[in-house]
Write a protein that binds this DNA or RNA. Sequence first.
DNA 1: CTCAACAGTCTTGTATACAAGATTGGTGCG
DNA 2: CGCACCAATCTTGTATACAAGACTGTTGAG
Lengths: 225, 225
Amino acid sequence: MTQLPDSIEDSVISAILGGRLRPGTRLGEAKLAEVYGVSRTRVREAMMRLETRGIVHVSARRGWFVVEPSATEARAAFQARRVIETGMLRDLHTLPGDAVAHLRAHVEEEREALHTGHVGSRTCLLGDFHIHLAHAFGNAFLTDILRDLTARTTLVSMLYQSDQDAAASSDDHAGIVTLLADGDYAGAARLMDEHIRRVEDGLDLAAAPDPLAGLREILSPGAPA
Amino acid sequence: MTQLPDSIEDSVISAILGGRLRPGTRLGEAKLAEVYGVSRTRVREAMMRLETRGIVHVSARRGWFVVEPSATEARAAFQARRVIETGMLRDLHTLPGDAVAHLRAHVEEEREALHTGHVGSRTCLLGDFHIHLAHAFGNAFLTDILRDLTARTTLVSMLYQSDQDAAASSDDHAGIVTLLADGDYAGAARLMDEHIRRVEDGLDLAAAPDPLAGLREILSPGAPA
DNA sequence: CTCAACAGTCTTGTATACAAGATTGGTGCG
DNA sequence: CGCACCAATCTTGTATACAAGACTGTTGAG
């Protein structure tokens, strides 16, 4: 496999997970090519791959944009995650020996990020928990699928979630890990279902995506004239 | 969205679902470009999209090949389908009014294909059932995911399934539709679990992918010298 | 006869050139 | 003053050219 296009993809995705790239942001081929020091060809490859994964989309002869999930898509993305993650836990019968320890350590990281308050790494870690869980389950396909779905739900949260209750999410994660440690996989599945539903219900899907987000930032008080 | 690359993608996928394209088949860019009457650029786009969907892979400077799932990947692909499809049915509480009728009609088509005996359309229809079911569930993301996973499991079957018991599969499908009609979604989920497990267990994962499949055909008795 | 080295051919990898459409800013008419 | 029209600019869409590596078949030595 080529090396650099993958790196562009990962770079974009981690920027989304970290909240540095918002829905609707334009990704110009020329600009990206300069940033990564490659030609447009490679950038286009990466963009088309990301498009297939549902992370960006192209508007003909206008450019590439980070997707802005509609209310319908937002619901569907969370539902998909719920179906897959609970299905995974329900199918679970054994877990690798070190999995619980890893997950516990991860939750501990979340806790720290909550206190230090860095919103980017916090969001990123909260999403990563689910990916790590999928990894522990041991199915590479499901892990990849959930990675992309998590990126999507992160974008959804940026659009529709006014105040992300990160502490509650982290508590849910901790509870899930505890149940897993006890071998209560059905219980973990139930809690996961509640957990994702809770996040989903916290969304304000009536809030239309704000096409002026970029402008607003620039015009906010304190910005240079 | 562009029009032709999608058509190349769909064309390749439907060829796989119909058994006309076997695992390991080489897809040369120049040849495909000629077939579709476009330049290599468009072909490469389509191939890269299919690669991110896990349908083909590229071997550096040798060409594009239809993926040949390993035994591990074969198991994982079926497990992923099982997790998602049972998760979907368990999450189900209502179904669109015409869904059951559509599914029933589809199963009827399967039956007919079983009798006429055209192996290509039969395989295609058996896979399509699951995609139609996902469509009835109404989640576009899950539908797309299952479409790709079904393509993968079709490839798995070509590699590891000596004799596909199509009749039994179709009976399972009919049973699932009956349970859905009764509103017994939990029962449908259980039967789906058994169904996919049955197909999975029917695989001979010890049978290593045969790199000589193409040769063998040519050298089989009766072939011209 | 066997095997290693090599030249030729073929295929993908990457960049670049040019075409086509979209957007923007300006200009002139009503 | 407002609005429609138009030219200039910018961005992606597509094709093509060339570079780099892999494979094949041949040739020659041992």
